[in-house]
Design a protein around this nucleic acid. Structure first.
Length: 215
DNA sequence: GTTAGGATACTCT
DNA sequence: GAGTATCCTAACG
């Protein structure tokens, strides 16, 4: 790496913008997760945008529920959901309060605290795989529903903070359809990634689950 | 190297 | 009751 990562904190204003502006701008930024054992720092390499009211792929499309309430709140907070019976995924809430837009963090590179991440990601064979995929990312950072609604832009005392990192030149930002989103919600090219980065997760089209026969 | 299938429990209809 | 913004392992080339 030639350029150093800028440790300047990003304020809540960074997320207080339209989600489609924030999502590509998050690439190359650094999310700090302060755990009891120490900090883990993640350079974000892949995200997806979810635009509440207009977006059939969003959890917020059908209105506010107990699960997605944080998305309807003010920006700068973390929305964590539980899926597929085993996994957590984390989002950063964007835009003005009430818009219910958020950016799903899909993948990243652990740049600090890899030892801590490895203890939670025992199946990862290489460090590239520690946070390659949204549920892996949440696992590596020790994120679960207890952090739903936490401040994403806190100081060193909070569970999370954001740093300027190293923004990505626009010609290195790839974009395409979102992963695992069913129906017409999948048509929007609202997935953004850093071209050529080894930690970007492979694209998987949505496949409806076949229910296991009750035998 | 790729692909298929199972695991798992929460959320909304 | 059915679907899910997924991951892992085993099997095969």
């Amino acid at each position: 790496m030639i350029t150093e990562l800028d440790r300047t904190p990003l304020t809540r204003d960074f997320l207080h913008r339209p989600v489609l502006d924030v999502a590509p701008d998050l690439l190359g930024r650094v999310l700090v997760r302060n755990t009891a054992e120490g900090p883990i720092e993640l350079r974000i390499t892949e995200v997806e945008a979810y635009d509440g009211a207009n977006d059939p792929g969003s959890h917020a499309y059908r209105g506010r529920t107990a699960r997605n309430g944080v998305m309807f709140g003010p920006p700068g907070h973390v929305y964590v959901y539980f899926t597929y019976g085993m996994w957590h995924c984390m989002n950063l809430v964007c835009g003005p309060e009430g818009v219910a837009s958020a950016v799903l963090l899909r993948a990243g590179e652990i740049v600090e605290g890899a030892d801590l991440a490895r203890t939670r990601r025992l199946s990862a064979r290489k460090d590239d795989e520690l946070a390659k995929g949204p549920a892996r990312l949440a696992t590596a950072l020790d994120v679960d529903r207890s952090l739903d609604g936490a401040d994403a832009c806190g100081g060193p005392d909070g569970p999370f903070s954001l740093r300027a990192g190293r923004p990505v030149a626009s010609d290195l930002v790839g974009n395409g359809p979102r992963t695992g989103v069913s129906g017409e919600g999948g048509v929007h090219p609202w997935r953004f990634w850093i071209t050529g980065d080894p930690t970007v997760s492979p694209y998987r089209a949505h496949v409806p689950r076949r229910r296991r026969r009750h035998t």
